[in-house]
Amino acid sequence: MISIWLIPSIILIVLVTATIKKVPSYEVFVEGSKEGIQIAITLLPFLLGMMVSIAIFQASGAMGAILKVFEPLMSMVGAPAEILPLALIRPISGTAALSMTTELIRTFGPDSFIGQLASVMQGSTDTTLYIITVYFGAVGIKRMGDALKVGLLADLVGIIASIVIVIILFS
């Protein structure tokens, strides 16, 4: 697999170039790294607060109830109802989406229609709420403008695109 080679190659290229250009690589590394600690600490309250709220929503069963409401809507479009929870959860919680994708692939098989659809859906969008929390949290953005609307609308397009593409390609 290419991906095994990717990260070591990046490290190799960076270090070789730095050495040729006489950059004091280790000292610069330590200097740059410090910023990582700072970002992680700034991030923690934003991430922790958001995660607790999502966890309450999920554990109470409210999330499941909302998913049930949307199910008939999904079968109307012709997509399997089993995929709906994943489509709804994908922008909100990355870990929940990943476990749903795994569960769908395990239950229906990776080469089934639902398995393919779950794979494409999981791979083609990201957890909008998490990304907004992390990216804006790290730099202390309080007024986020249209960011959430843009992210969620793009997710919607991504999910619809996944369904249409998988229907065309695999069924």
Binding site: V14, T17, K21, G32, I39, L44
Partner: peptide, 24 residues
């Protein structure tokens, strides 16, 4: 999550600082 993210952040921001200084 923050801890494991911190590890990744510390490593990559260090490496990227080198890449920046080397003109990459």
């Amino acid at each position: 999550i923050t801890l494991s993210l911190a590890g990744v952040l510390i490593f990559w921001l260090g490496l990227m600082k080198i890449a920046e200084e080397a003109g990459l």
